[in-house]
Amino acid sequence: MVALDALDRRLIDAYQRDLPLCERPFAVMAERLGESEAVVLSRLERLAAAGVLSRVGPVFDHARAGASLLAAVAVPEAERDAVAARISESVGVNHNYAREHRYNLWFVMTAADEQQLDARLDALEAELGHPVLRLPMIEAFHIDLGFPIPWYELERA
């Protein structure tokens, strides 16, 4: 695991929720943290390079920016990796997980609109030769705000 100091943690804790949409957002962050803009930027870069931050930027509502859908296929274990590679390469796929279940490959297909989404899924289904279970979101109960990170507990682990 990457070693994080107090400033790294404060940065992550404070900005998991909201980065100000002002002209110099990192300068405002820096001021709040009692640091310089340059320090904040270099920290963020380091955390991103280390993979601790997956990105600094907008989090889009999946349901409102374009169209997307969770999908799954059940494939024999021997074929799994080959099928997974074809799914990952397919245009529009942004997540692809192998999971321990008869439906063993789970992915998110995205598109500009519903029509393109259906077309992409139809084409992929035909290419894979396996039926694709389509699980569109009906209702989101969670307003994805990130969740508080219990740093001390993580240290003990």
């Binding site: 695991m1 990457v2 940065l11 992550i12 900005y15 998991q16 929720r17 909201d18 980065l19 949409l21 957002p25 963020l44 955390l47 280390a50 993979g51 601790v52 931050l53 997956s54 990105r55 600094v56 930027g57 907008p58 989090v59 889009f60 509502d61 409102r64 920016a65 307003i143 994805d144 705000l145 990130g146 990170i149 993580l154 682990a157």
Partner: peptide
């Protein structure tokens, strides 16, 4: 309009343990 939920530093929870 709700298209952007938030603008934020998005941690990679996997990397955090």
């Amino acid at each position: 309009a709700g298209v952007i939920r938030r603008v934020a530093a998005v941690p990679n929870h996997y990397r955090l343990g």
